[in-house]
């Protein structure tokens, strides 16, 4: 077993945040999520955090671990310096402990129309595309909407009106989809005051993405497409 020293930022609505220290044991390949479970299940049932699939797919347990946004279920305790500090994602209101209000994040996501727009009559079979056409937007299909990128962005910390990297990544996924017809409209939306041009290219989002999406590159591609459209 691996002894783990945890420092968790606790917040209760209406009260000042404070750091709580916990000592737990996890298996040699235990993850931060396992350490949090140990606390919640055996030491302090009031500790609150989100998790669902617990295997790096649903994206619900993104949090700031040792100062970096990561998925608690996808990082091993043995790879981290101790004590392991755990904080809620930055830039979003904290509901309790590690649970943040994701509503502004999803509001920005919805603003870019992240669904297939195609007014043609539905075909009798699937809408086909070539492997090359599919490859064009492959990277941005990997997004799991964990908000690790958006909440690592210093522009979003200062102003949550900025749609943020996740929304732009999800717009990118449809803008370059050969079956979609809403690309022009999405580029118009992202040309707005709070759109893609708020990005200052700090690369925090690319570093934070647990799926390894080249987020900053996707944002730059969208910016260039908006420029080409205007020219």
């Amino acid at each position: 077993m691996l002894p783990v020293s945890l420092k968790v930022q606790r917040r209760i609505p209406g009260e000042k945040p404070y750091w709580a220290a916990y000592a737990v044991e996890v298996e040699e390949n235990g993850r931060v999520l396992d350490a949090l479970h140990q606390v919640k299940w055996h030491q302090d049932g009031t500790l609150s955090f989100r998790r669902s699939c617990a295997h790096g797919v649903c994206g619900s347990d993104a949090m700031m671990i040792n100062g970096v946004n990561r998925l608690a279920c996808a990082v091993l305790c043995r790879d981290l310096e101790q004590p392991i500090t755990v904080e809620p994602l930055r830039g979003l209101n904290v509901e309790k402990d590690l649970i943040v209000d994701m509503e502004p994040f999803f509001e920005a996501y919805k603003a870019v129309k992240p669904w297939l727009v195609n007014d043609d009559p539905p075909p009798t079979r699937e809408r086909l595309q070539t492997p090359e056409q599919r490859r064009r937007y492959d990277d941005t299909t990997k997004c799991i909407l964990c908000a690790a990128c958006t909440t690592s962005c210093p522009i979003f910390w200062g102003d949550d009106r900025y749609v943020g990297p996740a929304a732009i990544v999800n717009a990118h996924r449809f803008i370059y989809d050969s079956r979609d017809q809403g690309g022009e409209e999405r580029l118009e939306i992202l040309s707005s005051e709070d759109g893609a041009f708020r990005c200052r290219t700090t690369f925090n989002c690319s570093d934070a993405c647990p799926r390894g999406i080249k987020v900053t590159e996707a944002i730059q591609e969208v910016k260039r497409s908006i420029l080409r459209k205007k020219i």
């Binding site: 209101n93 509503e103 502004p104 509001e107 920005a108 603003a111 949550d160 009106r161 900025y162 749609v163 118009e188 939306i189 040309s191 707005s192 005051e193 709070d194 759109g195 041009f197 910016k223 908006i226 420029l227 205007k230």
Partner: peptide
């Protein structure tokens, strides 16, 4: 929280 301003803008680009 203030909602994103999504009105198209030529000035930004």
């Amino acid at each position: 929280h203030l909602r994103p301003d999504t009105r198209p803008s030529g000035f930004q680009v």
